[in-house]
């Protein structure tokens, strides 16, 4: 179940309308397929602004199911703190050959 984001550092997740691919709002307001590249928004104002952009993207038929999630910044990039969001970033743990985890990591 979706867990309400309440931390000071958050990213914005969505699914692409056309193919359902999980995406995150990256820097420069582009959607990225790798959660590690998700932009991290610090504090309520920045989060609200990012969400507003994402909701507008929903109205433009780009993405659906927009929501904020708690994240932390690690050496490997942005990392969701909740299990559900981490799994969204990799794919089914019971099929390691499928989903994002099966792709070559971005160079």
């Amino acid at each position: 179940m979706l867990v309400k984001a309440k931390g000071t550092q958050q990213s914005v997740a969505a699914s692409r309308l056309l193919d359902g691919e999980a995406v995150w709002l990256g820097t420069g307001n582009i959607w990225v397929e790798d959660v590690a590249q998700a932009a991290v928004f610090d504090g309520a104002d920045a989060i609200a602004e990012a969400l507003a952009f994402a909701k507008a993207e929903e109205k433009r038929q780009i993405v659906v199911d927009v929501y904020p999630l708690d994240v932390e910044i690690t050496e490997a990039g942005t990392r969701p703190t909740h299990l559900r969001e981490r799994l969204k970033g990799i794919g089914p743990t019971v099929r390691r050959d499928l989903g994002k985890q099966a792709r070559q990591p971005a160079a």
């Binding site: 699914s15 056309l18 193919d19 359902g20 999980a22 038929q61 794919g91 089914p92």
Partner: peptide, 25 residues
């Protein structure tokens, strides 16, 4: 896709045709 109906309105329609939006796809 043209934006003539919203996702909120489309959702029950796609569900009644068996189409969900899940975690990965």
């Amino acid at each position: 896709l043209k934006g003539e109906i919203t996702e909120e309105e489309f959702k029950p329609i796609r569900l009644m045709n068996g189409l969900y939006l899940q975690l990965h796809a």
